[in-house]
Design a protein around this nucleic acid. Sequence first.
RNA 1: GCCCGUGUAGCUCAGUAGGUAGAGCACCACCAUGGUAAGGUGGGGGUCAUCGGUUCAAAUCCGAUCAUGGGCUCCA
Length: 634
Amino acid sequence: MIKITLKDGSVREYEKEVSIYQVAMDISEGLARVALAGLLNDKLSDLRTMIREDASLSILTFDNDGGKHSYWHTSTHVMAQAVKRLFPEAKLAIGPAIENGFYYDFDISRTLTPDDLVKIEEEMKKIIKEKHEIERFELPRDEAMEKMKSIGEDYKAELIRDLPEDVVISFYKQGEFVDLCAGPHLMNTGMIKAYKLLSIAGAYWRGNENNKMLQRIYGIAFPKKTLLDEYLHRLEEAKKRDHRKLGKELDLFSMQDEGPGFPFFHPKGMIIRNVLEDFWREEHRKNSYDEIKTPIILDVELWKRSGHWDHYKENMYFTEIDEREFAVKPMNCPGGMLMYKRSMHSYRDLPIKMAELGLVHRHELSGALHGLMRVRNFTQDDAHIYMTPEQIKDQIIEVIKLTDSIYNVFGFKYRVELSTKPDNAMGSDEDWDKATNALKQALETLGMEYRLNEGDGAFYGPKIDFHLEDSIGRTWQCGTIQLDFQMPERFDLNYIGADGEKHRPVMIHRTVLGSIERFIGILIEHYAGAFPIWISPEQVRILPIAPTHHEYARELKEKLAEKGVRVYVDFRDEKIGYKIREAQLQKVPYMLVVGDKEMESSSVSVRARSEGDLGAMKADEFIEKAVEEIQSKK
RNA sequence: GCCCGUGUAGCUCAGUAGGUAGAGCACCACCAUGGUAAGGUGGGGGUCAUCGGUUCAAAUCCGAUCAUGGGCUCCA
């Protein structure tokens, strides 16, 4: 007797082995119709999987990640089958389900065009209509290899060659199409309902730039047309929040052909920058940081000593002054080291926390540039903390808390990653282990969830990264905390301990916002350009009805400006509806309409960006309210 | 860097049997003096990204360069 415990705790008993699909059928036919995969003993499993002993099982539908995965996996097979029909010579590489949809990589001699996508979609329609049963079978390694080689699937053969010894090599077959695949898959191709092929992209075989570039097709699929439409609509909406589009519309910044990756900040963008930096300074003063500024160009010798010459040269810019070699700084730390070394330090002075809004330049690959998110020059809100080894954990915790409190002001969700020793690292394994453990402990003390990112640390130390999301869900690293035993050694940093001897301090490199530029990009998308009033470049716009009200508007403006409010008057000879429309499109938080009524009663008619007409109130009352709202950073 | 797409007025875009450029918005002028998302009329504005080639003739076809968008990580 086999006992199967279901999600709701109920138990089903079977005389002999049974497939997950059959169990779903037994629960209800309706469930079986929408079943896409099973979670068998917490393992994502194919519906065909036979249950041979007692187990827990839940049936997965499109509402579960596992179900979606299976749905998209079959979708990509249908797409691959269509491609093989249209391009019989195409070789298959890999084709997984991803977070949002699926892709498949092909090696095809001719480059695909958007027209091809339409043809492939049409062929997919036929395959879905043909409703092929999907069969799973296994082969021993040799036979599997032989089979793939015989049909010219060289990439699949290579994959089989590199599979671990103990793995079961499975295939899925639908009609004439066979693919090496671990599954899981749906029962037949007819279950794919609404789908769309979204884009063609290049992708290196196995993600290695030394390998051949393949053609990747991305797609998405849903069990209902309405879901697909909703998804496509959401994509469109997300595009409207794109910081590059809003940056132009709201006149915040621009990129010029003359400076690829070097952003220009316009007056309104500068207001946002300055507001951010003021806020940042305030928070750092409260947390006992000192602020410094180090030069942008420094002698190449410094960069040789710091290790950047050996580990970071490819990303650096160089120049010559009076026949002496200089480098443009890609990081602020070496300059910071010199600041530390300028005098003796006592253990009583530690930790020393030196912050710097430092402009750094890095040579990023041209194809990697992306609006304000990835640029070639940016301002890091950097700080270096010099401390005794005993202070490490507390200092890391303090930085994590500071970062969290600052992100909370903006209401950001974030993800934390711990990155470990990379291939081109500097320093001993012991140092790295010590540093990595310190970061881990700090995270665990705070009970923070984090993702491990093997081999992605800085060349001088492991790091904790804070990732923020953009409008379409891509994440960008912003805050970072890096523990470093190397630089203090290389620069022979010291402090005098209680014993009167010299000791080696440990240092932390850290940023909270990360790059001011990137952070502004994230801010723009997060708020869709409708900044909270304390950040808004223009906080209040006064809209006089007619020229006779200009004088009153001017007086109001002065009153508000005196209180530090960023206020402008629209003196143009236009109708009120026109002025409102423009202020609204510019996402100004408050519009004050002033005409005869308001003039007579020393009041203003308030229109809020989001709520619309709020009616009249005394001018002084509005000013007080606005100032309060700005100060509270809501 | 690599693959594919795109590059026409300040902005958004139209302009394919190749015959030396258009619209809306914005800007300027005049008229209208207007109460919660675009009042009317007129006007100025473009080396069609750059360089080269094909052609009697190129925004349009070809090549290169530059810029820009998507992707190149999420492992059958």
